[in-house]
Design a protein around this nucleic acid. Structure first.
Lengths: 355, 355
DNA sequence: TAGCACCATGCATACGTATTCCGAGCCGCC
DNA sequence: GGCGGCTCGGAATACGTATGCATGGTGCTA
């Protein structure tokens, strides 16, 4: 049974919130003691602790994180800035980060930049205002590097995921993107393709650049020419992939295969090719990058380079925790995970390709 | 040119953060004035304002949101609790909410419950501790209704999206789920199907229940029997969809069509059917629910019931803003959007179905 | 039994901002 | 020229928690 109906309750929802002072009064102790119970201070008698806990229960006490943050300087909040949540690569990453954060009693403040440097800057500023203990950035645009430096100097640790920035002064977690671009291309070469196109994403991102570098390197090592008409940069979107595919197919000498800078672009290519009655992989082979969950669907069967998103998310958070904790000044670390090719249908290897 | 090198800089990252008092000192005004400039108080001279702004610029001042929250009681933070980010329906919703929130200078704290009541409760508690001004819940589990009531009574407005809870005391935004289930089923009936299965998600969710009700209603109105063997409830996951499809196909009298409680289940069904060499839609028709982006891919072509996720997200935030603002005590509102069938390939209508 | 050490708790203060109440000018008007 | 009113800005306080320091009480030892 509860302690009976509220006496003289003020208009509900308007009543003053209960503070640790209220608990102290009810339990007959000082506010300091309440605070100590809250923080599991060792030198508190079991009886006092229980009295305090009972009072908290009775008054439905909820500590005020803002007050705690103000005095401790720590918020138990981290920022997570993503370039585009609707790109299916990110949900897995976000899920892993949010879950790992929760295990460490951290909450996540989410920002979505839509690849806009302005929005990226706005979010970083807001995050610092909200006293986040650190931030994970998956949207690093190279044009936003300066803003980032300001955040760092303001004392907020930052970890980059997926994309990196030149200079190497920031912690980051990513796969070997150049190698990824290379193994995708090498696979197509091995299948006998010689005119291989590159369908790129945003030009000012490290991922796009490195994957393209890998593509180029593989082509050069195989002694193949790179036709400038077969290299197109755009966005990491389905629409952009479609436009790129259209351009490639209508080129003077169309390619027999396309290496895409990510899976969403690849899916855009495939849909556009479908519209033009170009068969994949019989007429044109397509390889993606990321291995988003959609790629594994039977109706898609996208050959792609795998990124272990959950693993990347966990590592990013762990790295951030190290920075938040003791190791604030250590040298920047680069955690590089291996790139791995996942062979499915769109490259033609399964249908008895020439390799 | 900047003001020259820092004088006697303490170890970087360790220096005390600059507060409004520092700005006041540098600008030769009081802290109150700094605060007023910050809040665009009207009665501040242009000269004073500029002096203060210059000082802020020089010291790279960042206001402390925790202190502001402590005194104003408002954090410019809202909570967003989702059941499963990796379900492709949610990213669009999240994107819309985050974007709308940003327009109103709000930040979003994200939680992912994985359909766990415990996690849902933990997040709600943490959100209240962090003084969020309100919360949007898309994961409402019926078993967590009590916790929700506590949050509400603690003075934090809550808006439900997609799912609802019995009692009708909470604001919510959703489509007409029952009608959605009905039009999906009616469409299959019109195509000549008589043995139609229902591949459900979590049984303790309003969406699953209402969509099933719609299915049942359509069947009954058409004078068709519902074979208990053809009604299966599971999870809103690809795996669960696959298991359900397996059960349906191996039933004594298999169905000729399946209505799924969401698109992810539908995709799981389709993949499982593919593995068993059951052709979709020739052997079995499949209809999904949500119209996630994947459904529109050419290789998928999923017939499904559309939910306008961006619109729902915007409305949910607007509704929450109303609650945070003036209208705290008004009666609960239910914003219901229409359900719309999107016909693609998996129902067989395009291939010259019998309708 | 006296004295000392130590443990549990209370007191007081600090964190950084918003806001209420005041006071000091200044202008204009009669 | 004097006074009223208005405008701008300062002083002081409050928000709710954490924590260093002080204190009283208890138990142990000689």
């Amino acid at each position: 049974m509860t302690s009976g109906p509220d006496v003289a309750a003020p208009p509900p929802g308007q009543r003053r919130k209960v503070s640790s002072h209220d608990i102290a009064r009810l339990a007959g102790v000082s506010q300091s003691t309440v605070s100590r119970v809250l923080n599991n201070h060792p030198r508190i008698t079991a009886v006092t602790r229980n009295r305090v806990l009972a009072a908290m229960e009775q008054l439905r006490y909820t500590p005020n994180a803002a007050a705690r943050t103000l005095i401790t300087g720590r918020s138990q909040l981290i920022g997570l800035v993503v370039s585009n949540i609707t790109n299916p690569f990110y949900p897995q990453l976000i899920e892993a980060i949010v879950a790992t954060a929760a295990e460490h009693d951290y909450n996540v403040v989410l920002g979505n930049t839509q690849e806009s440097p302005r929005r990226q800057m706005d979010y970083l500023k807001l995050l610092v205002e909200h006293q986040v203990d650190g931030a994970i950035l998956t949207s690093a645009l190279q044009s936003g590097a300066d803003d980032l430096q300001r955040v760092i100097r303001a004392g907020t640790p930052v970890v980059l995921v997926n994309r990196t920035l030149p200079g190497g002064t920031l912690d980051s977690v990513h796969i070997d993107n150049q190698r990824g671009g290379a193994i995708a291309t090498e696979h197509l070469i091995r299948l006998g393709h010689r005119r291989i196109a590159f369908a790129g994403g945003r030009a000012d991102t490290s991922t796009n650049q490195l994957r393209f570098d890998g593509y180029r390197q593989a082509m050069i090592e195989a002694g193949l020419d790179i036709d400038p008409d077969l290299v197109v940069h755009g966005d990491f979107t389905h629409l952009s992939g479609g436009i790129t595919a259209h351009r490639l197919v209508t080129a003077a000498r169309p390619p027999s295969a396309i290496v895409c800078a990510d899976d969403v672009i690849a899916l855009g290519c495939i849909d556009a090719l479908h519209d033009r009655r170009v068969r994949v992989p019989q007429d044109i082979a397509v390889v993606g990058f990321d291995d988003v969950p959609v790629a594994a669907l039977k109706g898609i069967g996208l050959t792609t380079v795998r990124q272990p998103a959950p693993e990347m998310g966990r590592r990013a958070f762990d790295l951030l925790m190290r920075r938040i904790g003791d190791d604030r000044q250590g040298p920047a670390v680069d955690e590089v995970l291996p790139a791995e090719l996942v062979i499915r249908d769109t490259c033609g290897a399964r249908a008895g390709g020439r390799g």
